[in-house]
């Protein structure tokens, strides 16, 4: 299987505080890669460096290289806006645009790209909502406010919004941490579906979740990538003592 994203010697800072230390990792296509680790270990910062969102925070900077299909996304000539169109992201807390309808939320990214023909737009919105397993619940009320949905539905709306612009990579930053178990289950089922078409990176607090959905798992601790391997090996036969301590629940 080919690697979509390669990260070389990635370090990141917030002002003077370094939060990531020399990360080297590759993300494979058409599968789920999970990133686990305790709070504040740099998991989120890591994926936010992959779609160049980290740099939008005042005082934040990074060093190292991130390659998307062998091209350095931090090269001088690269427009971060173009990168973010290719790499979608779903956040920890569902964040639909509160003034937009369900339909407009999903179509938000498309309209920017000059999509105006409504028949095609409707088709894409429907397909995205179907992919996000939300279509059946909202098809009769697409004009209602996106924020009128329940938390789990809002998160799937955000997933649909990210999918609508047809990204190549999907980054998910603890997408289930604000959801109840039933909604979590649905999002996980969705991931299994989606990995046929996308490279997915999911940051999660929940080790069972990582074990259930991912093919590879990386364990972060204090800003370093301690271990990266097949998910089955990480959870059954970790090579590093710290990984073992974490997954057996001795800390974190």
């Amino acid at each position: 299987m080919k690697n979509r994203v390669e990260v070389h010697d990635l370090s990141a800072w917030f002002d003077e505080q370094q939060v990531l230390f020399d990360i080297n990792v590759a993300i494979e296509d058409k599968c789920v890669t999970a990133i686990i680790g305790p709070s504040g270990c740099g998991k989120s910062t890591f994926i936010r460096c992959v779609n160049r969102l980290h740099e939008t925070v005042p005082g934040a900077r990074m060093s190292g290289r991130v390659l998307l299909d062998k091209d350095d996304i931090y090269a001088q000539v690269v427009d971060p806006v173009a990168i973010r169109k290719r790499i979608g992201m779903v956040f920890q807390r569902p964040n639909p645009f509160p003034t937009m309808s369900i339909f407009d939320n999903v179509a938000a990214g498309l309209k920017l790209n000059g999509f105006r023909r409504s028949a095609e737009l409707q088709e894409i919105v429907q397909r995205s909502l179907e992919q996000a397993a939300l279509w059946d619940q909202v098809k009769d009320r697409l004009g209602e406010a996106g924020a009128s949905l329940s938390g789990g539905q809002q998160q799937r709306l955000c997933i649909a919004r990210a999918l609508a612009v047809e990204p190549e990579i999907l980054l998910m930053d603890e997408p289930c941490s604000a959801l109840d178990p039933a909604a979590t289950q649905r999002v996980e089922d969705l991931l299994v579906e989606l990995q046929n078409n996308y490279a997915i990176v999911i940051v999660t607090h929940n080790m069972q979740q990582a074990a259930r959905v991912s093919k590879y798992t990386g364990f972060f601790l204090n800003g370093g990538l301690i271990e990266f391997d097949d998910t089955s090996r990480i959870f059954t036969n970790p090579q590093d003592k710290r990984t073992e301590d974490y997954i057996t629940g001795r800390f974190g």
């Binding site: 806006v81 964040n95 639909p96 645009f97 920017l112 919004r161």
Partner: peptide, 19 residues
Amino acid sequence: DQREAALALGMTRWEVIRH
């Protein structure tokens, strides 16, 4: 998180403000 939602969709600075 509203700004980031817009940024992550590939919006430019003006589009983030506008939308």
